[in-house]
Design a protein around this nucleic acid. Structure first.
Lengths: 193, 193
DNA sequence: GCAACTTCTTAACAAAAGATAACGAATCAG
DNA sequence: CTGATTCGTTATCTTTTGTTAAGAAGTTGC
C-alpha cells in the first residue's frame, strides 16, 4: 500500500531502500468521511497526506464565500503546505469531497530527514519547485483568461476533465473565480454555439 | 557590491565564506536600459539576476495584452525561474522599467553548487518555498477579492506602496488583472468616498 | 423508501467591467 | 527647447457578472 506513495515520490527523486524506509517507518493511515475536514483554517497544519482513494478540495473561506485553489485525487499529495512551512495557522481549508483513505506523515518528520538524508532536501526542493510552477500557470490563467476561456481550458485538460465528473459544478465555479450562476450561463453559451 | 547579494541570500540561508565565494566567483555584472528586456518569451532563460538598482516588471503577453505577475526592485532577485527549472522556453517577459544595474549568475552554476555545497540545495529549497508561498497569497487575492479590494490591499502593503510612485498606473492595472480604464474608475470611486 | 437537502438552471434586475474614443497633462528624446 | 509620444481620466455604449429568488432534478442519509 505504501508502495504507491514511493512510486509517486519517484516523480521528484529516486530513493534508495534505506532512504525510503526512513520515511516509511513514520507513515500512518487514516480514513475520513465525505465533508470531513483534513485541515481547517485557523489551525496549524502539521501533516503531509497522500490520497490512496477519494478526493479533496482545498479552499479559502472569505466570510462564508468559498474559493477553491486546488482539487486533489487519489495518488496525490495533499497538504496545507504553506502552514507546515511557516508554522503559522492555516489560511485554507481541506475538505473531503468523497470518503478518503490516506497515508500521512508529519512535516517535522520530513524536516528531520533533511539532515539525515540529503536526498530529502532535494525532494523538498523539487516539491516546492513543482508547487511554484503549478501556481505560476494557475495565476497566469486567472490573470489573462476570461472566465469562459478558463472554463474551456479547464475542460481541455485531461487531468481535470475527470474532475467535472466527480465534483459539483459550484466548486468548479469557485475554482474558476466566478459564481455558480455565472458558470451555468457560460455553459449554456458554449453549448449553444 | 556583491555584499548586497550575500546579505540578501541570508534571508534564505547563511553561507560560510568558502560557500559564498564559490558563487561569488561566478557573478557577472550587466546594465540594461529602460524598456530593454532581460528575458523575452519564447527564449530559454538561463540566468538568475539580482537588481542593484532600477526596477523590472515580469509579465505575460497574450496577443498584445500584457499581464503583470510581479514587480521587482533593487536588492531583489529577478529571473524567469520556471524556465530555468524546466529548460523550456520562457512563457513570460522581464522588462526594465528603469535603467537597471544587476548582478547575475547562470542557473547551471547554482545547480552545480548543489552537489558541491549542500547549503545551496537548502537555499534553492527555501527560495522555491518562498516563491510558492508568495504565489499562493497572490492567487488567493486574485480569486476572492474584487478589483477594488485588490487595489486597496495593494496600496495597504508598504512594500508595494513605493511601486505606485515609480510605476505607471497601467502596469498596476495589469497586475490587478483589470484594464487601465477600470483602475482609473476605481481610483475615482475610492477618492470620492 | 421517502423526506430533507443539494445541486443546477433560469429569470430579472442592478452593478461593474470591457471597448473605444477623445482630451489634456506629463514625459521623453533628439 | 520642443514636437512627439505616453499616460491618466472621463464619457458613452455594450457586454458580462453578481445578486436574489424560484423551481425542477438529483442525491443523501436515516
Amino acid at each position: 500500500m505504501t508502495d504507491r506513495l514511493r512510486q509517486h515520490l519517484k516523480f521528484f527523486t529516486d530513493l534508495t531502500d534505506p532512504e525510503w524506509q526512513a520515511l516509511e517507518s513514520h507513515l500512518q493511515v487514516k480514513t475520513i468521511s465525505r465533508k470531513d475536514f483534513l485541515v481547517q483554517q485557523g489551525e496549524k497544519a502539521t501533516e503531509i497526506g497522500f490520497l490512496l482513494s477519494g478526493s479533496c478540495r482545498v479552499f479559502y473561506d472569505k466570510d462564508g464565500e468559498e474559493w477553491t485553489t486546488y482539487f486533489c485525487f487519489e495518488n496525490n499529495l495533499v497538504a496545507a503546505y504553506a502552514s507546515c512551512l511557516t508554522g503559522q495557522p492555516s489560511t485554507l481549508n481541506i475538505q473531503a469531497l468523497e470518503d478518503c483513505e490516506l497515508l500521512f506523515f508529519k512535516y517535522e518528520t520530513l524536516a528531520a530527514l533533511y539532515r539525515q538524508f540529503p536526498v530529502y532536501e532535494t525532494f523538498a526542493r523539487k516539491l516546492a519547485e513543482y508547487l511554484f510552477m503549478g501556481l505560476d500557470v494557475r495565476l497566469a490563467e486567472q490573470l489573462m483568461l476570461s472566465p469562459e476561456e478558463r472554463y474551456l481550458k479547464f475542460l481541455g485538460s485531461p487531468a481535470k476533465r475527470k474532475i467535472t465528473e466527480r465534483i459539483p459544478q459550484q466548486y468548479i465555479a469557485s475554482y474558476l473565480g466566478i459564481t455558480p450562476v455565472s458558470l451555468s450561463r457560460i455553459r449554456r453559451r458554449i453549448i449553444s454555439s
